[in-house]
Design a protein around this nucleic acid. Structure first.
Lengths: 257, 257
DNA sequence: TCACAAAATAACAAAAATTCTGTTGCGTTT
DNA sequence: AAACGCAACAGAATTTTTGTTATTTTGTGA
């Protein structure tokens, strides 16, 4: 077990337990307390937890939930198959918009498979992945950088998006309840809305576990999207709601071999 | 001498000689030919040279001259002392604009020394260096990414800049002749002009060897800048021209200990 | 076209550099 | 006073770099 794995394991514990004990961790991983200290220092520096005397805690639901570096680790498989399904909608030559989020980052990086493309994004991970790639015209929206969401937001972003147009816009969201889509952050809601307005067709990407949840701000009615893409089937109640609203739901896992 | 140093030395040789001999390099650096092979492979992969049988060459003046990865290595000392001089003009709390180019990249990264700051830039290297830094509000202009110049340009960039304002704008340029400033690329001239227009005070950064040169497009009259910063004294004719035009010239090297 | 020498590459092993860990000692906190 | 956190050093484990050898490719001239 390497250092990164151990740190990830500590994060897993933090999620389920809410707090970890330093001595306990040292025993569990069979390393010295000093090593655990260093791991916790790193995690704290990365902003995903807080060190306390004798261990560490996580202020659940707050900055932790929203830390991209951690989210990027989660559910990579689920995100990959959703990206696969989204990719099927893209044809070479198109102009594609990609919003913030780790899901979108994975999809963005895989857009090279459909070159040539024009890609418009405010997602820093996508910019990094695509710059330097031939056959991709990369347009960054600009904006104020947010370390929390690893992307660019604010008035600049919205103004830029209002002046652009894309064939497809992929929007991801952390909460869908009934026929409404939510996000906890107002700034990001604004950016996503601007992107939706700029896309001829817009698709919503949602992890199956995010159905039946809400967040502070309403982002959109689900009917504003061409279709909804998810990884595996969400709970029946959500499916019913979508069916009644005549929304097309693509379950990516069922498409594959 | 480490690997990177050796590769840089090989590049230096390539600049002066135009071509290098593999066997000769192996002797000169007292390493095996295999090691040189690997160095050349790396340099070729980085796109700064071409491997040929028995050595390597550089297609001088073409893609090489314009490759930012290589330029970033050049004259690091000169750029650092210019950055030092420019930094002296920045006070915490200010809003600072940084344009494209490797000189600007070095200055941009060192802006952390003056936190807190708001930094507006279209330079990808600056964005990478500053994102994640606390105390820096980072605003990217957005725009179409150019691998050649490692930055963002075009209509989006210009539109964004026209809606922003900064206390100081640092503009770098590759050619100054008499009282006129030049750049070879039209797209970049546009971005630089937009940035100049958005800065309350604008400063020009020019390497001393770039005086007395022209390029295809005129960027500005030198009188449009508050002052000109260079590394060491340029040739007398250029100094005379600046003096007569009553332009303030800061020679960074003369400021230091 | 063919042969052959020189060069390029691949694969493995040794060496060097870097990263990771544990220990110890000392100052802090409870 | 006991437990904890932290800094500094040293040894261990990894990763990167390098050299050697074997094999393949390339260019040249007959």
């Amino acid at each position: 077990m390497k250092r990164e794995d151990r740190k990830q394991a500590i994060m897993d514990l933090l999620i389920s337990e809410g707090a970890v004990d330093l001595e306990d961790l040292a025993q569990r991983f069979a390393v010295s307390k000093m090593t655990i200290h260093r791991d916790l220092d790193d995690l704290e520096a990365a902003g995903v937890m807080r060190k306390i005397r004798g261990g560490g805690t996580i202020d659940a639901g707050t900055q932790f939930e929203s830390d991209f570096r951690f989210r990027a680790q989660q559910d990579r498989d689920a995100k990959n198959i959703m990206a696969q399904a989204a990719l099927a909608l893209v044809e070479p030559g198109m102009t594609v918009m990609i919003n913030d989020g780790s899901m979108a980052a994975i999809l963005g990086a895989r857009l090279v498979e459909k070159r040539p493309l024009t890609v418009i994004t405010n997602n820093a991970a996508v910019i990094d992945a695509l710059k330097g790639e031939g056959g991709i015209t990369l347009i960054a929206t600009g904006g104020a950088y947010s370390a929390k969401f690893n992307g660019f937001f604010g008035m600049v972003t919205e103004a830029t998006l209002s002046a652009l147009r894309a064939d497809i816009a992929f929007i991801s969201a952390p909460a869908v309840a009934g026929v409404e889509v939510f996000h906890m952050d107002e700034t990001i809601v604004r950016a996503k809305r601007a992107m939706m307005a700029a896309g001829t067709k817009t698709y919503l990407l949602v992890h199956h576990s995010r159905f039946g949840r809400t967040a502070l701000h309403k982002l959109a009615d689900i009917s504003e999207f061409e279709a909804v893409i998810t990884d595996t089937a969400p709970e029946p109640a959500s499916i019913t709601a979508l069916t009644q609203a005549k929304i097309s739901l693509t379950v990516a896992a069922e498409q594959e071999g």
